[in-house]
Design a protein around this nucleic acid. Structure first.
Lengths: 197, 197
DNA sequence: GTCTATACTGAGATAGAC
DNA sequence: GTCTATCTCAGTATAGAC
């Protein structure tokens, strides 16, 4: 693998593990063994390297989210995406960036993060609309709001898990929101409830 | 105000704004005007000051959460707490710490964060149990899980808002989860079933 | 308690040879 | 493209006088 790619891969890892501000060019070089000269040949500044690494991390994340767009029962896709295995104690490699002051204050670094979330939001809205159309969710729920809520549930789950250094809360969070989603199915015409419409 | 308190207050602000790793002793001194000598007299290391500041930030947060324990209708307390005014773009002064590598790796610094969340969780569980007992929420929902879910919704809402540099997503997240909670009321076959607008 | 001076390290580069 | 040397400044203190 060439130096350039090695640098980007390593920076991506470190930004996931430690964020941007607390990752130094030295860290990167020591982890991947690429020399000073090469590094500054390919990336004139730390920020340039970080931008490349960030784009890579965003690209890593989007395929998973596109499962939401897949075929099949909408509610099943929602559950599958929520329950997909995730390393709760590492957190989200994209969401994490929002807490790094040097990223948050730099529109160029923040832009890929915003774009990533915007794209995932689109997928969420689509599958939620489908779930409502399929009468799996009540039609008085707002798909745009709910999409943000479900994204937030995952992002917040990481926070709680890290605080406790225990993946438990992350699993609780997912179980809790699934419970709510199931409870938010339209009332069905069965022996107990009468049909609403 | 004495130097010691000034230092703690200022460090608290900076840890909220910039986190721990990216806040230097110099930042603190320049913001509050306390000299080098005083600073190291009161706090032998940056970490000692950070610990005091963190305890203070935690203490700031808990009174709000204790509103959940108040009197009155449980569901009303839940809504009031969720909708309480919050500066979405600043984020949570406690939750933020989980994304700081130097805090996350330091059990002493992480402990107050974990304790704070544990306490808030207790309040949430209590009010959720009350809401279930009052038939405002279905009794097949798990209060422990749901408590974590609702905490996560707020924490994650900050992440989305900061990513977009816009409080909108934070409001969406709260509206979305309130919608779910309302939809998760027990079915009441003989009454006009809620079709809200 | 507060001040000023000093010290050592790492962050984040730049320069120029090969 | 990669290497080594060098540079400047900020981070994080320590020392000792007042």
């Amino acid at each position: 693998m060439d130096s350039r790619q090695l640098l980007v891969d390593t920076m991506s890892e470190l930004m996931w593990e430690r964020g941007y501000a607390d990752t130094s060019p030295r860290h990167v070089r020591e982890r991947c063994g690429v020399g000073q000269g090469s590094m500054y040949h390919h990336f004139p500044t730390k920020r340039d390297l970080a931008l490349a690494a960030l784009e890579r991390n965003v690209a890593d994340l989007l395929p998973a989210a596109s499962e939401l767009d897949g075929p099949g029962d909408p509610m099943a896709r929602i559950e599958a995406y929520l329950m997909r295995p995730r390393d709760a104690l590492k957190g989200c490699k994209v969401g994490r960036m929002t807490q790094d002051p040097q990223v948050r204050e730099d529109p160029v670094l923040l832009a890929p993060v915003a774009r990533a979330f915007a794209q995932v939001h689109v997928s969420w809205v689509k599958v939620l609309r489908e779930a409502i159309a399929a009468r799996e969710l009540r039609d008085d729920l707002d798909p745009e709001h709910l999409a943000h809520t479900l994204m937030a549930v995952l992002q917040g789950g990481y926070v709680l898990a890290i605080a406790r250094q225990d993946p438990g809360p992350f699993d609780d969070v997912r179980a809790g929101v699934l419970g709510l989603l199931r409870a938010a199915a339209p009332s069905t015409p069965n022996h107990k409830n009468s049909r609403r419409n």
